[in-house]
Design a protein around this nucleic acid. Structure first.
Lengths: 348, 348
DNA sequence: AAAACAAATGACAACGCTGTCAATTTGGCG
DNA sequence: CGCCAAATTGACAGCGTTGTCATTTGTTTT
């Protein structure tokens, strides 16, 4: 049967409290004793019982992921990353999908906290960028980490994992410019996302640096959806002086743009280059495969979770090495350019 | 602060044990007493503490979802459905993604059960259709529900939620036939999935019933992927006597088929009809939108979870109404034909 | 070498609930 | 009315941890 802390204590010849100290990495345990205990833990394959810990302790061993995102790929990636971090530290994950339209997120948050003791929260866009949600989380006194587009980190950098959309968009645009493109269309994502603005910013910066003037006519507002990509690209391509390249704000839109181009019998990439953003499976389910910026969602989530876990832990009175605590946690990601088959030289 | 069972007991003027009886729906509580307690529960917004329950009780209030499926849409749908059922009954969900290639699922199962007391399991394809996994689950004495294609339910119907792929495939094919199609290509999914065979079966039955002979040349083996859809459709359309309609075994393949057709400048649905299966977001991200069979994954998952929860509960010694226990749980689903824009009259 | 202090360890009571079993109440019946 | 079985209720001991605080052991200091 499963072994308990008593078994370990007996085997190591110490009290259960000492075992508790060792497995919680508390100070005031002699190295020799610590070793004895760890050996016993090893031998018995001991794993602390989560229910007991949650019940007895002041701190909890559960974190929650709150999301409201229609993009299944994104959610799954996030989840997997967080799960990985949790598993490594013996925490449990509570999944909480939420619909910001039909329910009041703040109420849900409160209920969540009251019902299950939760150690911390991982917030993803759009919640992570919504002030009222952030305020509520703070009010509840919860540890949290927000996964946000760089612009939304403000004075809260300690609690953010940032994605530098601007830098990545800059790189993508630069790639197009280096391929001789001078007229580059931009399909913007939803206004409410901070990333939308960041990506546009990067696009503009790259053009400016290359001395190419910005043509507002080539910037089409839209949403992060396939349909929006289709209509945006159409609008662009039906112009008198159409662009030779299109920067779609995400892969889904790029797929739509690709489709629109195909409908108009435009060859990709010979006559038109198209880029996406995110490196979601979408970008591999098109023909040709999309040039895009790889956004390591799973890794991002893993870092976010690790950060929350550290926060929760450091609250517990005694903490040994709080110095290099956050070692190995990247707090700022720059999606990397991934050149595939949808971009090429500008047709002169 | 959060109220406990003691608060409720005090307010209702009974012992905590009686409160426990009421919230667990145990018999032997006088209606009047029950009411008093329920009023107190109501007034105090009492919610039983999960950690305490898990620790104290013999049964657990956690079920697990084990999956190994690359289709993010599918997984999210499943998850949401299960989560809904869990929330309704006060259970918690443990998510366990697994990779059958890199790890041994059976070991993972064992670890899962030993570590966290788990009340039951929801298994999805391909695990739900893998004998060795099923055997292990049984050996561990776990309650489980398998979500399977009808063919795989065998003598285990009590533990299965079935999806009748054959019936749905029959309906889809019939729809094509009714539109005058006589040469219908079939793009098959992965051999290892039971659904693949079921769908092919339905296709054949419909043809036979319509008196159309089955042309093996029109049945192309493949996988449930976009690329497979592209190449399969190409193979079909490059034939001397190409089909006028293509039945792709899922939406992803259908999207691929659509793309291949587009590349060959074939108009959809004027020159060629294409159908998918599943009604995943894929089917709405194509142009034209796909005719498909709606597979209510979220609902299926919800039923599966409800069933597991019932199993787990009925084990607990005292159960009042075990008669109509499974009321409202559908155990067999037939995906429903959804006619959209990718199918039309056969040219000719 | 003893006193004084700090570090390491342990005993024991929670945590909020369920399970067991004993105590009490109820209702039916002679 | 009183007695007995059945139905209802309650007292209390865990479940496997952590937190508190007392105790023991080790290390300085003088």
């Amino acid at each position: 049967m499963k072994s308990t802390i008593n078994d370990v204590a007996a085997r190591a010849g110490v009290s259960i409290k000492t075992v508790s100290r060792v497995i919680n990495n508390e100070p005031s345990v002699r190295p020799a004793t610590r070793q004895k205990v760890m050996d016993a833990v090893e031998a018995l394959h001991y794993q602390p019982n989560l229910a007991a810990r949650n019940l007895a302790g002041t701190r909890s061993y559960t974190i929650a992921l709150i999301y409201d995102n229609p993009n299944a790929y994104y959610v799954i990636d996030m989840q997997n990353g967080i799960l990985e971090a949790c598993k490594a530290r013996g925490y449990e994950l509570l999944i909480h999908p939420s619909n910001s339209k039909s329910t009041n997120v703040n109420d849900e948050l409160r209920a969540l906290v009251e019902h299950s003791k939760v150690a911390g929260l991982v917030l993803t866009p759009p919640f992570s960028e919504t002030q009222s949600v952030i305020d509520e989380v703070k009010k509840l006194g919860l540890d949290y980490v927000r996964i946000v587009s760089s612009g939304a980190a403000e004075g809260d950098e300690d609690n953010c994992i940032q994605v530098d959309d601007t830098a990545a968009a800059f790189d993508i645009t630069k790639h197009l410019i280096e391929n001789g493109h001078k007229r580059i269309g931009f399909l913007a994502g939803g206004e409410e996302h901070v990333s939308t603005h960041g990506r546009l910013e990067g696009y503009k910066e790259a053009l400016q640096q290359a001395g190419i003037s910005i043509d507002p006519d080539l910037i089409i507002p839209g949403e992060y959806s396939f349909d929006s990509g289709v209509s945006g690209a159409k609008a662009l391509l039906e112009k008198d002086n159409p662009p030779t390249a299109i920067f779609a704000s995400n892969d889904e839109m790029a797929a739509g743009a690709l489709f629109a181009a195909r409908l108009m019998h435009i060859e990709i990439p010979a006559q038109l280059s198209i880029v996406g953003f995110e490196d979601s499976p979408f970008s591999r389910q098109t023909w040709p495969k999309l040039t895009t910026a790889h956004q390591p969602n799973s890794e991002i989530a893993k870092c976010a979770a690790a950060l929350v876990l550290n926060k929760a832990r450091s609250k517990s009175a005694s903490e040994s090495a709080s110095a290099n605590k956050d070692a190995g946690i990247t707090k700022k990601f720059v999606p990397e350019l991934l050149v595939r088959d949808s971009t090429g030289q500008s047709p002169a």
